[in-house]
Each structure stands twice: as structure tokens, then as C-alpha cells.
């Protein structure tokens, strides 16, 4: 039986996309649980210990949370812009998932003459694609904040727009250094070129810059001004409830996994092990897990920036540092004659 190559390609992409989406949704559910345990530990509490316990861990807690969220009333404020209000949470999740199309998860595997690539697409502009998709993420929050017709929501949305645009610039600059030494925009190439030595060795400043900007882009502590509860109730998501709120929450957690995966791919060798040991998806998962833990750790321990501090830090510290890093990388590369 001969298979139409186009149909094979389509099936291949569909299966991978479904697997990745399901895996990310599962990761979201259990990240909420993990975060509660990490926070509990930091605050010397026990954490969730009632629902479906296996040993000390409440394994079924996310299921209970999901059921509770689904059965909440799906409320829409009277003067809200109904279409945009409904669209915004879905948009948030869709955009958060899009980045995964280009992230390579594991080296290719050949089974029975058919080579499986563990990425959905290896496009020549993958790094630009990531930045482009990332730059769309702000829409969901801004639209959600605006359409709720509530001043706290609107303020949260506007803050997030200003914050994400400001930090996006430095985020892009932080990645430029890696792109320069890799000489490619394809994430598969970038990972392959880190085989013996990871990019973080050559780009330590870029790595730190990326990590700071990534936290800002995901609106997490200490950059969670869009939903600063002491000032803005819950910011852009104030008027959201039920599944719509859950979707915003989901987008935030998927974004955390995404920026962690990008950091691991760009700077820490992706699926490459240290010194080229046993490359495989397990290394990528381990690196992502460490990043996620640091995100939770920061949430439990750091205070929030003030708005003017946030802007000053972004434009007067991170941006010049990013430019200097690009300049220094270029000079060193010319001097080394690469």
C-alpha cells in the first residue's frame, strides 16, 4: 500500500499537535498542584491534603478544581463587550500553545524506515516565529481587560500592554546573541550546535536577561502588576469567572512552560545533556521542571515591583544591557574571525 506523502505529513503533524496540547493541559493541571505544595513548603504549611491522597500528595486535587470551575456560573457583566469578552480567554490559550510548533523536543528517531522528528515544524525562521507569537500574547490580556468594562480590569490590561511591549524588546535582544553565535534561526540547528558546550557559556548575560524578561512576559511575580491584587482586585481577570477564568489561568501556566522551554532550548542545549551525554527529551523536561520550580519559588518569596520601578528597570537597565551584549558578542566574533 502506498501512502500519499501529503496525507502522511498531515497525519504526522496532527498527531504531534494533539499529543503536545494534551501534555500541556495535563502539565497545567498538575502545575497548579505543584505550585500549591511549593508555596505551602515556603510558608511552613502542609498544603492540599484532602482530595484523593496517594501518600502525602493529593493526586486528585486538580480534578476536583476542574469540576468546581466548570460548574461555576458562566457570568458576563451587563455592559461588557460580549464578543471580545468571550474571545479573549480563548485567544490567550491559543496563542500560548502556538509557540510549541517549532520547539524541538528530542533528537530524531528512526523506526522501521520511518524517521520521526520530535517537532511539529522546523522552519528557517523559528526564532522569529517565537518572538512574533509572543508579541501577540498581549492582545488577550488587553482585550480581556478592556471588554470587561471595569476600571480595575482596564488598568490591569493597560499595565500589561505597557509592560509586555517594554520587556519584549529586551527579550528579543537577549536572544540575538544566541542567534549570532549559532548563525541560524532554526531551533533544531541551534540545539544541534550546542552539542558539546551550551550557549549559556558564551552568552551568560543574554541568559540572565532572557530569564528576567521571560518572567515579565508571563506576568509572574515580581512582575505581576497586571493583576496586582492589592491595587487592582485581580487586574484584567477581575470580571472573569468559571471556565473563562480557568482559560486565562491555563494560558499563564502554559506560557511559563513555554518560556522555560525556550530558555532551555536557546541557552541550555535543549534536549542535549551536559557534555553531550545521552541526548533526549528527558533533559529538556528536567530543565523545564527546574525553571518552573524557580518560577514558583519566586512567587512565594519576592515582593512586587512598583510601576515606575518596572518601567525604569526595563528601559534604563535591561535595554542598554541587551544592546551592550549584542555589541560585545559582535566584537568578539569579529576578533575571533568567525
Amino acid at each position: 500500500m502506498t501512502l500519499d506523502p501529503f496525507m502522511v505529513m498531515l497525519l504526522d503533524v496532527l498527531v504531534k499537535a494533539i499529543v503536545i496540547v494534551v501534555a500541556l493541559l495535563g502539565a497545567y493541571a498538575y502545575m497548579t498542584l505543584a505550585e500549591r505544595y511549593v508555596m505551602a513548603r515556603v510558608q511552613v504549611r502542609i498544603g492540599p491534603n484532602r482530595v484523593g491522597r496517594v501518600g502525602p500528595i493529593a493526586v486528585l486535587q486538580p480534578v476536583a478544581d476542574a469540576v468546581k470551575t466548570i460548574f461555576k456560573e458562566d457570568f458576563c457583566p451587563a455592559n461588557a463587550d460580549k464578543i471580545v469578552y468571550t474571545l479573549a480567554p480563548g485567544l490567550a490559550v491559543a496563542i500560548a500553545l502556538l509557540a510549541w510548533a517549532v520547539i524541538p523536543l528530542s533528537p530524531p528517531l528512526t523506526i522501521a524506515g520511518y524517521t520521526i522528528h520530535f517537532y511539529i515544524a522546523d522552519v528557517g525562521i523559528a526564532a522569529l516565529y517565537l518572538l512574533a507569537v509572543g508579541s501577540l500574547g498581549v492582545y488577550a490580556i488587553v482585550l480581556g481587560g478592556w471588554s470587561s468594562n471595569n476600571k480595575y480590569s482596564l488598568l490591569g490590561g493597560l499595565r500589561s500592554a505597557a509592560q509586555m511591549i517594554s520587556y519584549e524588546v529586551s527579550l528579543g535582544l537577549a536572544l540575538v546573541g544566541v542567534l549570532m553565535i549559532s548563525g541560524s534561526l532554526s531551533l533544531v540547528d541551534i540545539v544541534e550546535k550546542q552539542s558539546p558546550i551550551w550557549n549559556v557559556v558564551w552568552q551568560p548575560v543574554g541568559f540572565v536577561l532572557y530569564c528576567i524578561c521571560a518572567v515579565a512576559e508571563t506576568n509572574r511575580v515580581p512582575f505581576d502588576l497586571p493583576e496586582a491584587e492589592t491595587e487592582l482586585v485581580a487586574g484584567y481577570s477581575t470580571e472573569y469567572g468559571s471556565l473563562k477564568f480557568a482559560l486565562f489561568y491555563m494560558a499563564e501556566y502554559i506560557n511559563i512552560v513555554t518560556v522555560s522551554a525556550i530558555a532551555a532550548t536557546m541557552f541550555l542545549g535543549g534536549y542535549q545533556g551536559p557534555f553531550g551525554l545521552l541526548p533526549g527529551a528527558h533533559w529538556l523536561l528536567l530543565k523545564i521542571a527546574v525553571f518552573i520550580f524557580i518560577f514558583m519559588w519566586m512567587r512565594a518569596t519576592l515582593p512586587r515591583f512598583r510601576y515606575d520601578q518596572l518601567m525604569r528597570f526595563g528601559w534604563k537597565v535591561l535595554l542598554p544591557l541587551g544592546l551592550a551584549n549584542v555589541f560585545a558578542t559582535a566584537v568578539v566574533m569579529v576578533l575571533l574571525g568567525r
Binding site: L128, L131, A132, S135, L136, V138, A161, I165, E168
Partner: peptide, 17 residues
């Protein structure tokens, strides 16, 4: 990519702002 990044991601979001 430039189209999405610059027009949709930067310029238009400032319009919306």
C-alpha cells in the same frame, strides 16, 4: 514573521493602547 511581530505585535497594540 516581521509582519506579525512589527505590525500586529507592536504598532497595532500601541493603537489599541
Amino acid at each position: 514573521a516581521a509582519q506579525v511581530m512589527i505590525y500586529a505585535g507592536a504598532i497595532l497594540i500601541l493603537f489599541v493602547f
